[in-house]
Design a protein around this nucleic acid. Structure first.
Length: 190
DNA sequence: TGGGCGATTCGCT
DNA sequence: GCGAATCGCCCAC
């Protein structure tokens, strides 16, 4: 078996709508722990649902920087959520990683989540950050350097698109992408 | 199986 | 002060 190719930050230097569906099937690891990305959402600077919509602030600053870097924010005061910045610097677009099929470091993820069910380890943006140990200390780090590793997908996965989840603005934009039929999604596509 | 709600921090109005 | 790119628990059906 050939070693899978590693994706570099250059991969993200394109439109967020190009990058997002191509991330489905890629493998994301933090310190060797993680799995296959099965669900993402695209956010754009002209999108009212995006954190970058109203311009740069202290929190969203990373989104206005170069592509291929990680933007971590706190959600509902409790959870962490992880994005990867896309497009040329300054366009403030990002892909939110929403669900992962756990494949590496299951014991570590179970311990962090306190759950026995593999299916529920990474089936949501807050869950996967907890399972993989992602916090605000990862904010602003490049995705193509340790502790992160991103491996290119093998083959052509069956990608579905649908409306995004948990937002109140621009709810009809079909900018949620997922692996069709995966058991590890945060919610099924219909 | 699905809807309602509380927890808890912080950016923005 | 409000409400959010969420989660997990509880309850009804």
């Amino acid at each position: 078996m050939p070693k899978p190719a590693r994706l570099t930050r250059r991969f993200f230097n394109r439109s967020v709508h190009q990058v997002a569906p191509e991330l489905i099937g890629a493998t994301l690891l933090v310190n060797g722990v993680g799995g296959v990305i099965v669900e993402v959402e695209a956010y754009h600077h002209t999108d009212p649902a995006s954190h970058s919509y109203r311009g740069p602030t202290e929190r969203n600053g990373v989104m206005f920087g170069p592509a291929g870097f990680v933007y971590v924010y706190r959600s509902y005061g409790i959870h962490w959520c992880v994005n990867v910045v896309c497009e040329p610097e300054g366009s403030a677009s990002a892909v939110l990683i929403r669900a992962i099929e756990p494949t590496e470091g299951l014991a570590a993820m179970r311990r962090r989540r306190g759950l026995p069910e593999v299916r529920d380890l990474c089936s949501g943006p807050g869950k996967l950050c907890q399972a993989m140990g992602i916090t605000d200390k990862h904010n602003g780090l490049p995705l193509d350097r340790p502790p992160f590793e991103l491996r290119a997908r093998v083959g052509e996965p069956d990608v579905v698109a649908g409306p995004r989840i948990g937002i109140t603005k621009a709810v009809d934009e079909p900018w949620r992408y997922g692996l069709r039929g995966s058991k590890f999604l945060s919610k099924p596509f219909r």
